[in-house]
Simulated scan of single mutants.
Amino acid sequence: MNSEQIKLRSMIVTALFAAVIGVMAQMVIPIPPVPITGQTLAIGLAATILGAKYGTFSVLLYLMIGAAGVPVFAEFSGGLSTIVGPTGGYLIGFIPAVFIMGFYMEKTAFTFLHAMIANTIGMLIALIFGTVWLKIAADMSWLAAIAGGITPFIIVGLIKAALAAWIGVLVRKRLQSAKLLLPTEYTAKKTA
Rank of each mutant, 00 (worst) to 15 (best):
A138C: 04
A164D: 04
I121P: 12
Y62C: 01
I128N: 05
I146T: 01
I117M: 10
Y54C: 02
I31K: 04
L163C: 09
A19W: 01
T191R: 14
V169L: 08
L16T: 15
S77G: 13
I95K: 02
G168W: 06
T14R: 03
Q26G: 02
L61C: 01
P96C: 13
L41I: 07
G55H: 11
L143F: 15
T37I: 02
K160H: 03
V20W: 04
L60F: 07
G122T: 08
V59I: 09
V23I: 11
A145W: 00
G22L: 03
A126L: 10
T82C: 05
P152D: 15
G102K: 12
I65G: 02
L80N: 13
P35H: 13
N2Y: 13
T82L: 08
V169T: 11
I121R: 06
F103Y: 08
S177G: 15
G102P: 15
T14N: 00
L134K: 05
T14H: 00
A47M: 00
F103W: 12
A18I: 04
V169S: 07
A138F: 00
F17D: 10
H114L: 03
L170C: 03
A67E: 06
V84G: 11
W166E: 12
I31P: 07
L45Y: 00
F57P: 03
P71L: 11
G149V: 03
W142D: 10
N2K: 12
V13K: 14
L50C: 07
L60Q: 07
I95L: 08
F112N: 14
E185C: 10
L170D: 06
I121N: 07
A19I: 10
G130F: 05
E75S: 08
S141I: 11
A74F: 08
D139H: 14
G69Y: 07
P96S: 09
L181G: 10
L182I: 13
P71F: 07
I43L: 00
V171E: 15
A178N: 05
G78R: 15
A19L: 06
G66P: 09
L158K: 13
V70T: 11
T120E: 08
V84D: 14
M24S: 01
L45W: 00
L8M: 14
I65L: 09
M101P: 14
F73C: 15
A145R: 02
N2P: 09
A145G: 07
L181A: 03
R174E: 09
V132R: 08
T82G: 06
G149M: 07
I83S: 08
A188G: 01
Y104A: 12
E4H: 07
L61W: 00
G51H: 05
Y54N: 12
G122K: 13
R174V: 12
